[in-house]
Design a protein around this nucleic acid. Sequence first.
DNA 1: GTTCCATATCACTATTCGCTGATATAATAT
DNA 2: ATATTATATCAGCGAATAGTGATATGGAAC
Lengths: 125, 125
Amino acid sequence: MEQIAADRNSAVTDTERRAKLFRGLADPSRLAILDALREGPLVVHEIVGRTALTQPNVSNHLRCLFDCGLVISRRDGRFVRYQISSPKIDDLLRDAEALLDVVAEGIETCRNYRLDEDDVAPGAA
Amino acid sequence: MEQIAADRNSAVTDTERRAKLFRGLADPSRLAILDALREGPLVVHEIVGRTALTQPNVSNHLRCLFDCGLVISRRDGRFVRYQISSPKIDDLLRDAEALLDVVAEGIETCRNYRLDEDDVAPGAA
DNA sequence: GTTCCATATCACTATTCGCTGATATAATAT
DNA sequence: ATATTATATCAGCGAATAGTGATATGGAAC
């Protein structure tokens, strides 16, 4: 982005922080992982099984979620058990669902960024 | 992403829709625009003035937000007045702020995607 | 010790997204 | 009609990111 003006000191504005928080939730893989964890703590291979993502991919995203403070982890023998870090995350996800009830079709309409991989229907000229 | 398993029919899972909703909020420019609109309806050039973004950039993002159903618009003479489409958006943004109070430092830590443009300090090998 | 299982790390690549600049459209005023 | 202001559209570029595969690390069992 260009710049949000002012705040040349704190280097990171509140707006940027919030945007980055949303970015943590804006990936289908990460969101699937968080959804799985909403029902309770899980070890990595359990998450892999429930999301159909590859193991390195899950680990990569878990690292991201962990760094962001959205999940916490604890070693349990050979396993590492992850869980949601705060109930506020659940609140946020619930709010998102409520909002989605209102704007669902719109979301699919938006062509600015893609949701699936279908461009224009072939032959729809 | 790879695939979330099942749901081969609806083509678009709920998880994907939610991820896309968050994506709408995950850009600092779009978030700045929404923040400006939280205080009341504004016409485009007012948004431009408050965000220090260029006019085409603002229009592009407004189109995205509009398609997503996050804002609505009404022509007013030569102007087009935009406003937040639902109070639920404000709820969501508030929840995000509350969550950020808890995970703020973490968010800045996460290196998976960047917030500002400082990589590694040059010469920190 | 060695082997096996669980998880993490990392470089690489393809794809995607945001910004810009030029330009088109729309509405009003002169 | 022409000029002027307000907004929208679009192509192209540069940068950032998600997924993969190979591999490293950690811990338990034998």
